[in-house]
Design a protein around this nucleic acid. Structure first.
Length: 424
RNA sequence: GUGGCCGUAGCUCAGUUGGUUAGAGCGCCGGGUUGUGGUCCCGGAGGUCGGGGGUUCGAAUCCCCUCGGUCACCCCA
């Protein structure tokens, strides 16, 4: 198989029918909910100036080694979007819309890493952001938006974990205490450990290395360092979730991957995923990010949901099976004089899903295609029926192949009446 | 970036201690019904055995390299 270049690049995938149908349903489910919550769609470029993403955090892997960077012909340093929040914040700072700015997005994301189950170089995320409001009610609303999305899809094994990173006042105190603890208690754990402590001690908390666990377990808890304001915010978020009946657990070690998070952070994990990556969505507050990009102080919160992971989770739970009935009618041309073109056009203009065969295939071959098309009815254009301005309509779902004659003038109405039901 | 496993028709896979024109099922196309599918029967198309090099009289089968897939680590949706 010649040139390996004529195939999707490593870590990318084509999505073909009928699989793409599941994508449409996932996106439609999210979009419907986002619109009901009062969020507007925001579309930002696939690439940005690298500085936009460097705000995500110099110590994060996403910035250090996973960015798809490129230089364009004008010498600009650009990067393909590795995460969804930074571009939205950049757009906010650029256009200064009125707050609260409530937006949702659907966008491809890129990270240069070796692919594995649930992790790809190009993946898609659905997300939502609310900018300009500090109210814990917003935290609750944003979390409820994501939570409701999973529920709408029918996912039952998705759990919500939340934590608080503290505010500008409490977080530095905690990070300092944590660093002290890790340096002394973990002095003998090797260079990699110490390097990570220096870079970002928070990232040690969710490490999987077994040898590190005792030191991590003994680490101070962020909850003990929260300022009164941060503690109250967190308590009100939790109370709000309780009031809406949204089950959640507090995960003290949940720090998430980006440096910009403050205050509330959360993650949705699926127990249906046996894969190493079981997070199907996550997000949090980023009260300083807009300011860091030169904008006004703008407390904000948002999340991203990985579509590929949601689909894996949905499949594991037996959801999103393809719709067996893709068409209302398949037209079989037994005349060959152009009538078929007119009939198919009439059905489609009449709001029905209709298709046909091409290339002058035999009637038998056309019926085979009709069967495989997933159509509810086969519409036969035959010379005998044509003499009476009629067509023969056959129920392709019936084992007996029930067939009847319908006047052409009544065809659209008849199909509308019967294609949705069980039996004509 | 590191490691394990894998790479034969569109798909899922067989291919004996290396030995003649590389097979099956499903799918696809055609015929059996000069106007009827889904069952059944018959026939057909489709593969430089991922690619390159080497060993050998001879390689899908052995060796090396390379590309790709997959899973895991790091990290993350």
């Amino acid at each position: 198989m010649n040139p390996d270049v004529y195939r999707a690049p490593v870590g990318t995938h084509d999505v073909l029918p009928p699989d793409s149908e599941r994508w449409m349903r996932v996106v439609a489910t999210f979009a419907d909910r986002a619109v009901r919550f009062g969020y507007g769609l925001v579309l930002t470029p696939v690439f940005e100036h690298v500085e936009v993403f460097q705000r995500v955090g110099a110590s994060t892997d996403v910035v250090r080694k996973e960015m798809y960077e490129l230089t364009d012909k004008g010498g600009r340093n650009l990067a393909l979007r590795p995460e969804g929040t930074a571009p939205v914040v950049r757009a906010f700072v650029q256009h200064h819309p009125a707050v609260p700015w409530k937006v949702w997005y659907l966008a491809p994301h890129f990270r240069y890493e070796r692919p594995q189950k649930g992790r790809y170089r190009q993946h898609w995320q659905l997300g939502a952001e609310v900018m300009g409001v500090d109210d814990p009610d917003v935290d609750v609303e944003v979390i409820a938006l994501a939570h409701g999305f999973y529920r709408d899809l029918g996912l039952t094994q998705v759990r919500l974990q939340i934590n608080s990173m503290g505010d500008a006042e409490s977080r530095p105190a905690y990070v300092a205490a944590l660093r002290d603890h890790l340096r002394t208690a973990g002095a003998g754990l090797g260079e990699e450990f110490l390097a990570r402590v220096d870079q970002n001690p928070l990232r040690v908390l969710d490490a999987k290395v077994p040898d590190w666990q005792p030191v991590i377990d003994a680490a101070p808890h962020l909850a003990d360092f929260l300022s009164p304001a941060a503690a109250e915010h967190f308590a009100r978020v939790r109370a709000g979730l309780d009031a809406l009946g949204i089950a959640h657990t507090v995960a003290p070690r949940l720090v998430r991957g980006f440096d910009y998070y403050t205050s509330t952070t959360f993650e949705f994990v699926s127990d249906a995923l046996d894969a190493a990556q079981n997070a199907v969505g996550g997000g949090g507050r980023y009260d300083q990010l807009a300011e860091d990009m030169g904008g006004p102080h703008t407390p904000s919160i948002g999340f991203g949901i990985g579509i590929e992971r949601v689909l894996i989770a949905a499949e594991a739970e037996g959801l999103l099976a393809p719709d067996p009935q893709r068409l209302d009618a398949f037209v079989v041309d037994g005349i060959g004089d152009g009538t078929a073109t007119a009939v198919v056009a009439a059905l489609r203009e009449g709001g029905l899903r209709a298709d046909r065969a091409y290339g002058g295939r035999s009637v038998k071959a056309q019926w085979k295609l009709a069967d495989r098309s997933g159509a509810r009815f086969g519409v036969m254009l035959g010379t005998r029926e044509a003499e009476r301005d009629a067509v023969a309509v056959k129920d392709l779902r019936s084992p007996e192949g029930d067939q009847r004659e319908i006047a052409r003038a009544d065809l659209v109405a008849w199909l509308h009446e019967h294609s949705g039901g069980d039996t004509p």
